[in-house]
Amino acid sequence: MSVTRKEIEHIAELARLQLKENELEEYTLQLNKILDYVEKLNELDTKNVKPLSHPVEGENVFREDELKPSVDREEALKNAPSKNDEFFKVPKVIGGD
């Protein structure tokens, strides 16, 4: 499988990255090289192997649904790039792209 430059542009869009001309070129080249390398996994027959998503396979952890204190508003807004007293501020959403 090889990735085209057009696909790289699409992936960048999905990842919300705006790549420069030279980055697009470099990543197309490098991703192809990496994907060539990972092709070797296809040497293995894994038809009957169950995927492993977690190395320590445990059971789901439940807890009581209790009300507990969480971060207060002032703290939560502390690192906001733009805010007013109560909210995170973002540019206009409706009418934009």
Binding site: A15, Q18, L31
Partner: peptide, 26 residues
């Protein structure tokens, strides 16, 4: 930026270094 989506893209593109972007892409 002029809209929300360009705010995301510009912030992420300038904020992350090249290895991080490469891994996000892969």
């Amino acid at each position: 930026f002029d809209a929300l989506s360009s705010m995301y893209k510009k912030s992420r593109s300038k904020g992350f270094g090249s290895e991080v972007k490469r891994r996000i892409m892969l």
